[in-house]
């Protein structure tokens, strides 16, 4: 109803065009979400300023360089509006409407709720602006034309936001939201087809793809002596510790430190529940984990 009123209004009515339920962005909540979503992992180069870009991500499309997402008006997102940010995250398009490459995991982020997008946007404003120009991507010839992305989207993209499945347990749905839309665990752990679409039926089955090999983290079949308990999963997410008393490293430890460790207990429990719910690995798997 407010939207209808704003239709004929002056620009000063724009704020009223927001749904009445829109929350104010909370940068603290946004920081936890950003940690879980791994924003800085791909938008910061080794030793670089947080969010200033430059990080190289080799893929089958070529090498992408994470762009500058700091509020710098020239090189970062300083000139973007919230609507620009929403268009990128939910629709995979830049402010000019051009398709973004799915190396930016918008096929997952599209599921992020309106409220959480506002929190993330609020958090982004707190990054120090850095006047660092983007490093151009170094793409394979076949991937340079963005028109190919229109085709890709037909198989690789379904627009969000996330909706619980009919009759889905609310805790599982919350965990699935966190695991699929925000953390996009499959971004590293799910093998992809030749054109970079996550392979059906292989969710979280592990890959050797860069930036580093990601293990098969599917649950073991019931009764398998290596099967992890719910508590084992929660501990991994809270401390990065495995049931053997060993610890994860690299990108996963970063995710634990900046993301899963900072979740509320309820959210961590939900994420662990969803993790346990993905189709198990085959019983014959020789993998000892």
């Amino acid at each position: 109803m407010l939207g209808v009123v704003a239709l004929g209004g002056s620009p000063s009515d724009a704020a009223a065009a927001q749904p009445a339920s829109a929350v104010a962005g909370d940068p603290e909540a946004g920081a936890v979400l950003a940690g879980l979503a791994g924003c800085l992992a791909c938008h910061t180069e080794e030793g670089g300023a947080p969010g200033a870009g430059g990080y190289a991500l080799p893929t089958q499309w070529g090498t992408f360089h994470g762009p500058n997402i700091t509020p710098d008006p020239e090189h970062g997102l300083g000139a973007w509006t919230f609507e620009d940010f929403e268009r990128a995250m939910r629709h995979g398009r830049d402010p000019d409407g051009r398709f973004l490459y799915p190396a930016f995991p918008y096929p997952s982020y599209t599921g992020i709720s309106d409220d959480d997008l506002r929190h993330l946007w609020a958090w982004l404003q707190f990054l120090d602006p850095v006047a660092q120009p983007d490093t151009p991507h170094d793409l394979n010839p076949g991937a340079r034309a963005r028109s190919v992305l229109g085709l890709w989207r037909m198989v690789g993209f379904r627009r969000g936001p996330f909706e619980p499945a009919r009759g889905e347990d609310p805790v599982l749905a919350r965990g699935r939201y966190l695991g699929e839309a925000v953390a996009h665990c499959g971004g590293c752990h799910t093998p992809r087809s030749g054109i970079g679409v996550p392979r059906r039926g292989a969710e979280l089955a592990g890959t050797d793809a860069p930036p580093e090999p990601s293990p098969d983290i599917r649950p073991h079949p019931a009764g398998d002596p290596h099967a992890w308990s719910h508590d084992d999963r929660v501990t991994l997410l809270a401390y990065g510790m495995t049931p053997e008393g060993d610890f994860v490293g690299g990108e996963m430890m970063r995710l634990v430190e900046e993301g899963t460790r900072r979740l509320s207990d309820a959210d961590r429990e939900a994420l662990a529940r969803w993790w346990h719910s993905v189709p198990p690995r085959p019983a014959s798997s020789a993998d000892d984990r």
Partner: peptide, 21 residues
């Protein structure tokens, strides 16, 4: 402080120990 110790373990294993998966 315990988490910081674990992080140091994982950090070293990442570079100097075989992946066991």
């Amino acid at each position: 402080a315990f988490f910081a110790v674990g992080k140091a373990c994982g950090d070293c294993h990442d570079t100097f120990r075989k992946d066991d998966h």
